[in-house]
Amino acid sequence: MAEQRVAIVTGGSRGIGRDSAERLARDGMAVVVVCAGNEAEANAAVEAITAGGGRAIAARADVADEQAVAAVFDRAEAEFGGVDVVVHAAARMVLAPLAELDLDELDSMHRTNIRGTFVVGQQAARRVRDGGAIINFSTSVLALAIPGYSGYAASKGAVEAITLILARELRGRDITVNAVAPGPTATSLFLDGKDEETIARMAAQPPLERLGNPSDIAEVVSFLAGPARWINGQTIRANGGIA
């Protein structure tokens, strides 16, 4: 019998991360659901996976804290024997025009989104088993260039650069490194602070005329984590054709 593959999913307690964790479990992987602080939601994700016959554990870590992230990988190896897939979905989003963006908020967002990608990527590069996959998260806002998103988009531009370079640095390991760039997706991160008119307008923009669902993005994660062995160093824009 083939050894069970093991996935670590940061930001796995809610939204796209939660759907990705549950989808990878349905694909047959053991999953470590990583949260920043909402342990109740992380435990609920674990319960949903185990209720469906899967294997999962919850872990808490600030993704920008290298010791905390190393401890998550230690636990995955101790519980499940190794790590094959890392899905780095944890992120912060603070919106404001560039001229008005609070610089402390910018620093905090970039600590999570850029330093966090480095920290998670370092452990993944050192510890993912040959034949594995590393999946980061960008955003389709990079192409859309929506006012108010400069700080967030800048952080995700960094993620795309890191993704391509890490893919090349892992030459010879048979490890793919890709990023997923969702468009407007019906998660609390996207919906919070927007009125119904704004949400309806954004939902009408893609040719498919709807918001994405977290499950739509989880499908792409599943593809990159499993059969998509010839896709490497790419950013997949999962946005319904918006850009």
Rank of each mutant, 00 (worst) to 15 (best):
A2Q: 12
E3F: 05
V6N: 02
V9D: 10
S13F: 07
S13L: 07
S13K: 12
G15R: 06
G17P: 06
G17W: 14
R18N: 05
R18W: 08
R18M: 09
D19T: 09
E22V: 12
E22D: 00
R23S: 02
L24S: 07
R26F: 07
R26M: 08
D27Y: 04
G28F: 09
M29C: 10
A30L: 03
A30W: 07
V31G: 00
V32E: 09
V33Y: 12
V34I: 04
V34M: 06
A36K: 13
G37V: 13
A40F: 05
N43S: 10
G53W: 13
G53I: 12
A58E: 14
A61S: 10
D62Y: 02
D65Y: 01
E66P: 01
E66R: 04
Q67I: 00
A70G: 10
E77G: 09
E79L: 00
V83K: 06
V83S: 06
V85G: 12
V86Q: 02
R92I: 05
P97D: 12
L98V: 11
L98F: 14
L101S: 12
L101P: 15
D102E: 08
L103D: 11
D104Q: 11
E105G: 11
S108A: 15
N113V: 01
N113G: 03
I114E: 01
T117G: 09
V119D: 00
V119G: 01
V120D: 05
G121C: 00
A124G: 02
A133V: 04
F137A: 13
T139N: 06
S140E: 14
L142M: 12
L144K: 15
I146E: 12
Y149E: 13
Y149L: 06
Y152G: 03
A154E: 00
S155D: 00
K156H: 03
A158F: 04
E160Q: 12
A161C: 14
L166N: 02
R168F: 01
L170I: 07
G172P: 00
G172D: 10
R173V: 05
T185Q: 05
D192G: 05
K194T: 02
I199K: 02
A200E: 14
A203P: 14
E209K: 15
P214I: 07
E219N: 14
E219S: 13
V221T: 14
S222P: 02
F223Y: 13
L224G: 13
P227I: 08
R229S: 12
R229D: 07
R229M: 03
R229C: 01
I231S: 02
I231A: 14
N232E: 08
R237P: 01
A238K: 03
A238P: 02
G240P: 05
I242F: 03
I242K: 10
A243T: 12
